[in-house]
Every structure is written in structure tokens, then in C-alpha cells.
Design a protein around this nucleic acid. Structure first.
Lengths: 195, 195
DNA sequence: CCTACCGATCGGTAGG
DNA sequence: CCTACCGATCGGTAGG
């Protein structure tokens, strides 16, 4: 992004996030993105090198946000269960802060070309690994039951990642409330206690 | 689809499912679909009217499969909890029978134009409603705890719908095994019993 | 099902 | 950041 002011860069990324999440990366033309900024299509290339660069920047910044949100929690000295609880809440917060960015992060990475696609997959796997290690610890400690740790991790992440599909900022639940309910359900299950 | 033999139609849908799930609807060209059938791009239009028709047929047939799988279970006289268990297993089975079709069903419907998009959304909502009604019954009966029924439904469906992302037919778990573990986790939670 | 083709739009560039 | 433009590819059609 040669010679672009920070503000302009933010605007550009915000426009691309909104369009990529609404219509998908492939269905979004560079002309639509340019329109959103009220500039000509050709002028876009004063700010970016290719359309894919734009996707790449969105994805890497999203990945950064997820890592930054959970890292201090994971590194803390809290009990495993508490770290899981807080990591889920932090993850939920990143999604609810921008469901559009989360949608692009979770859905549009397939349109990266190599080697970026593999690099992205590596970072995503590393992130999942952090959750998996927490869950493994909880199982080994006996806090969690004797579940397959990979399977349990997939369940946790699928529950939290689905949020971008239905969360609305003007809905009845705050991000913390959502995290609390998800955690409660994941920890204790749907069945009435004692049944 | 004028004058197309059943076999040819099946081939065509199968090719489109594979390509739409791999690259996405927008990123798939009619020429790629034609190539997969070893015919010319123009010849495709002896079988379809538009590219979107192809997507529409895939989506409606997928929806039909989901409904057909759970309807007899929901209509049965079994206990609510057992109906939920079996409905989850049936849903999982539809996904594992073709993760590619499930991927198109869950991801590509946004590329429909109106009024088809709204019609699709209506059917999908009706399907979710069936699960929600089952869960509501379980809550009212006291079999499940006093959860928000909408939220509980979202949790259940997000867990089962995420499967298409990671299930591999040559993996260690059978579809029934997956359903059993998901149900167990959803019903009883991750925490060790009694903790 | 093929050949030959259509107008529209795509991502991107040169020169200012 | 604009004007003017590029070759490539898009979904789709006519006529056989």
C-alpha cells in the first residue's frame, strides 16, 4: 500500500470488509470497492497492488486480533477452566466487534492463492491449537470428562464461530452474555442438572 | 432442464456440487462445469437455462434431503429426548453423505437472486423451527434445563453444521459415532459428571 | 451436443 | 487520484 494515509487505509479496508462479507470476495468487483470510496476503479491501485492483497490484509489483521485477544489469558496463571472461560469470551468479543470481518475471516480465505493460503491455514491451525491445548489440560486434570480432545475442540470452536451468522449488535444479548451462555452450555450441557 | 436424461442430470449436478464447494459459486465458470462433463460451454445450455438454475437445483435437493431425513423421526411417538437424538443423527448423516453438497447448501445460498433467496431462507427457517420445537418441548418437559430455546437451537445446529468443514469419510469416526459424541456433549457438557 | 460468436464486465496499467 | 484504455474472461445465444 504505497503512500496511503492511515485513515484512507482504514476506510478502504472497512469498505472491502463490508462488501466481501455481503457478497463474497469473488462476487465483489474492484469497481464496487472504488465506488464505496467515491474514487475511480483505476485510482484504487494507488493504494493496493492487487485485489487479493486487500483480502490478505483483512485476513491477517483478523488473525492478529484473535491471537491478541486470547494470548494474555492463555499465558496467565489462572485455573485452566477459568482460562477457557475467558478465552471463549475474548474470542466471542472479536467476532461481535465485527461480524463482517469475522465472516470474511471464516469464509473467504479459500480465495487466497498459494502460498498465502497455506500460510493462513497455518496460522488458523496454530490458533485452534491454543484452544486444543487448554482443553487437553482440562481433560488431563480431570476437570473435563474423558473426551477426545480434538473433537471437543471442534465443538467449542464451532459453537463460537457460528455466532457471526446470527449476532446483531441491537439484539437482546451482549457479547459477554453470549459468551456466558455458550460456556455454560458447553460445560454443563442441555440436560437438567441431575437428570 | 429440457430433454436431459436422468443420468446426465445427475452427472451435471455432481460436477457442479464439487466445483461450487471447492471454489465457490461465483469463482466457478460455466466452462469449468462443461469441462468436467467433457462438453463445450455452449452445450451446457441444452441442460440448464442459467448458471443460477444449477445452484438452485442443488440447494432445493439438499433441503429436500434434510427434511426427508428428520420428518419421520419428528412425527414418531418416541420420547422427545430420543427424537432429538435421532434427528441429530439423521442430520449428521445427510451432511456426511456429501460434505460437498452440505458446503454448497450452507455457504452458497447467498448468491441466489430474489425471489429465490427469500424462498430458500424460508425453507431453512422452517427446518430450524422443527429443531427448535423439539428443544422447546424438552425444556417444557423439564428434560432440558431452563435455557433460551432459540439460543439452545443455535448451539445444536452450529455444532452439527460445522461438521462439513472437517469430516472425512476415511477418518476415524463413522457418522453415527460423530452423532453420538455430539449428542453426548450437547446433553451432558464437557465437565466431568458430578464436578 | 458443436461451432462460432455476442456484449458486458473483469482486474489491472500507462501516463498524467 | 483521473482519463483512457488493455487483454482476458464471463454467462449466454444462434444456427446447425
Amino acid at each position: 500500500m504505497p503512500e496511503t494515509t492511515p485513515d484512507r487505509r482504514t476506510e478502504l479496508l472497512a469498505a472491502a470488509i463490508r462488501l466481501f462479507s455481503d457478497r463474497g470476495y469473488e462476487a465483489t468487483s474492484v469497481r464496487e470497492i472504488a465506488d464505496a470510496l467515491a474514487i475511480q476503479a483505476g485510482s484504487l491501485y494507488a493504494h493496493i497492488e492487487t485485489k487479493e492483497d486487500l483480502l490478505w490484509q483483512i485476513l491477517t489483521e483478523s488473525a492478529d486480533r484473535f491471537f491478541a485477544a486470547i494470548q494474555p489469558i492463555v499465558d496467565s496463571k489462572l485455573l485452566t477452566l477459568e482460562r477457557i472461560r475467558l478465552a471463549i469470551a475474548a474470542h466471542v468479543k472479536v467476532i461481535t466487534d465485527s461480524t463482517a470481518a469475522a465472516a470474511v475471516y471464516l469464509r473467504e480465505w479459500r480465495h487466497l492463492s498459494e502460498p498465502r493460503k497455506s500460510e493462513f491455514a497455518g496460522r488458523r491451525d496454530a490458533y485452534e491449537r491454543i484452544f486444543r491445548d487448554l482443553i487437553r489440560d482440562a481433560i488431563h486434570e480431570g476437570t473435563f470428562g474423558d473426551f477426545d480432545e480434538k473433537f471437543a475442540t471442534l465443538m467449542v470452536l464451532s459453537s463460537v464461530n457460528w455466532i457471526y451468522q446470527w449476532y446483531r449488535p441491537d439484539g437482546p444479548m451482549t457479547p459477554d452474555e453470549i459468551a456466558r451462555r455458550i460456556t455454560d452450555l458447553l460445560f454443563h450441557g442441555l440436560k437438567r442438572a441431575g437428570s
